[in-house]
Structure formats: structure tokens, C-alpha cells
Design a protein around this nucleic acid. Structure first.
Lengths: 144, 144
DNA sequence: ATTTGACTTAAAGTAAACTCTAATTTATAT
DNA sequence: ATATAAATTAGAGTTTACTTTAAGTCAAAT
């Protein structure tokens, strides 16, 4: 089964421009073309796009993904380096999740602050010092 | 207690250039200056920088943070909009965490693949079809 | 007093990842 | 057969978030 660039764009939530850009950058090394020059995406190409998306999500830059493709092309002798890439990305991913969890905590704190503020009015909330530590106090909001 | 731009840069893990850039962009609305024009960062400014970092981590762009600052300056009448910002960022944050968890799963899968590959050699691993779904097969690696 | 290092501004430059334009060709539907 | 939709290329432009440069002023130490 083959797909046009437009179909793939829809399926992957990308634009055709982005797909051509990826192709130009060497990030779609196996996409074929018809005799008239039109790209034919196979299921295998789709799987690779899913993998590419995963590598991007883990924090790899396009040039790093390009490098990974070169390693794949080298075959067995690059096994260790490829394994290292995933090992490193796992660590990066975990760190990013931890950062986001910390960020979530602070956001929850803010949400609590705003819930209070909207329930009781700004003036009352300001009696609770703990709740105004992170920015609110920077602007002396006039109470009337 | 006041700090110079260099001290703050060290404390926050930023460069002085970045701090001046933030200031220029209006992201440090309360930082004062000495009579000779040198920036004086207060503890309150430091707290704001921590908050700014949190907002960035949650996925807000600098221009969105700028907008948030404008809202803070408006006082009580922007309470609802500010609450909405945190509400939205919480959702974005949670989605990002979910994406990263999915990504982690795929990476773990790859790590398992590479562990196997390095234990038994590429040829044997390729007998396990499930393990080669995501990219490896794209390049017909020559077995010798 | 002078050197060293940190500070100042304004503005140009950079990297990443697209995004869009233009001019043209190919494919599909009536 | 022809109109419309979708594909092609090359290359220029955009956005975000810095980063660097240049030319200078200020502050601390010897």
C-alpha cells in the first residue's frame, strides 16, 4: 500500500511542506518516487515517520536524527553508538518529565491561589503570605 | 539584599546577555538601576525569574509571559484571564508529560532491542519480527 | 594611578525548524 | 477535453530565543 504526500501529511498531522523539508534534509531516506517524480510513501515509511516523531519528542534535534540515520546505514558496527543514543534519550526524557512534574506543582499552587483570589477577593488573599511568593507581589496591586 | 546581573546569572544558570535580553523585552518589569545605570536585582526579582522559568517550562512563549505581565499590571480585573492561563498550562503540561511517557515506552522498547542485538548479534535479532518494526528494517542491513 | 573585570547600550548575527512563494507539471473528475 | 486539485522544485522568508559584537563606562584591587 502506498500513499501520496498529502495523505501522509493528514495521517501524521504535518503539512506537505514539512514532509518535503524532511525529505530534503535526508530524514526520509527510503521514500520512493513514481516515474513522473511523485513521492510514494510505504507503510514502512509511515512507521519511520512515527519513529522520527518519537525521537523528536524525546528531545533529539533533526541533525541528531540525521546522524542516527547514517548510523543505521552503517549496519552492525554502529550498534553500540545507536544503543547509547537511546540510553541518553531515556535519561533526558526522564529529566524532562521530572521538570514538568515540578512545573505542574507550581502551576497547581497558582491555580489554588487564583481560586482563592476569585472566591474571596484579592485583598483577603493577600493576607496569606505563602500564596503570593511567586510573582504576584512584584506589582503592588492597589486595594481599594 | 541586592545582586548584580552577573550574580543573578550565576544563580539562575543564565548568561548576563540573556538577562539583559529579557529586560529589553519587558520580562523583568521591576528590576531597578543605580544612579550610574547598573541593574540591581532584588530577592523579589529573583522570585520572579524562578516563576518565569516555570512558565517557560510549562510551554509558554516569551510573548505569552509578556502578556501575563501586562495582566498582572492591570490588577484584579485580569484575575479570570490569569487563572485561565494557569488552567490551560496545566492541561498542556499534563499532555506533554503523557507524550513523554509514551515516548519513554518506545525508547525502552528500542533499548531492549539493542540489548538483544548486542547480546546475540544482529542476525539473530532479526528473527524477532516484533522487534524490528520501528525503523531498523528500513535499511536492508547486510548479513554476512 | 592604572589595570582588570564587570557593567552599559544598540544593533547585528545565529540556529533550529519550519513556512511560504512562484512557476510549473501531473492526476482526477465531469 | 478541460477544469480543478494536488503534486513538483528551488529558493526566499519567518519565528523564536537567544548570542555576539562593538564601543564604551564603571568599580574594585594592586
Amino acid at each position: 500500500m502506498y500513499y501520496t504526500i498529502g495523505q501522509v501529511a493528514k495521517m501524521m498531522g504535518l503539512t506537505t511542506h514539512t514532509l518535503r523539508f524532511y525529505d530534503k534534509e535526508g530524514l526520509l531516506p527510503n521514500v520512493g518516487k513514481t516515474s513522473s517524480g511523485i513521492r510514494r510513501f510505504s507503510d514502512s515509511d509511515l512507521n519511520w515517520l512515527i519513529m522520527l516523531d518519537c525521537l523528536k519528542s524525546s528531545g533529539l534535534q533533526l541533525k541528531d536524527i540525521k546522524h542516527y540515520i547514517e548510523l543505521l546505514k552503517e549496519g552492525d558496527k554502529s550498534l553500540k553508538e545507536r544503543a547509547m543514543i537511546f540510553h541518553n534519550q531515556k535519561i533526558k526524557c526522564q529529566q524532562e518529565i521530572n521538570t514538568l512534574k515540578q512545573t505542574m506543582k507550581k502551576i497547581d499552587y497558582k491555580i489554588k491561589y487564583y481560586d482563592e483570589a476569585m472566591k474571596h477577593g484579592e485583598a483577603n488573599v493577600h493576607k496569606n503570605k505563602a500564596l503570593v511568593r511567586e510573582g504576584e507581589k512584584l506589582f503592588k496591586i492597589k486595594k481599594k
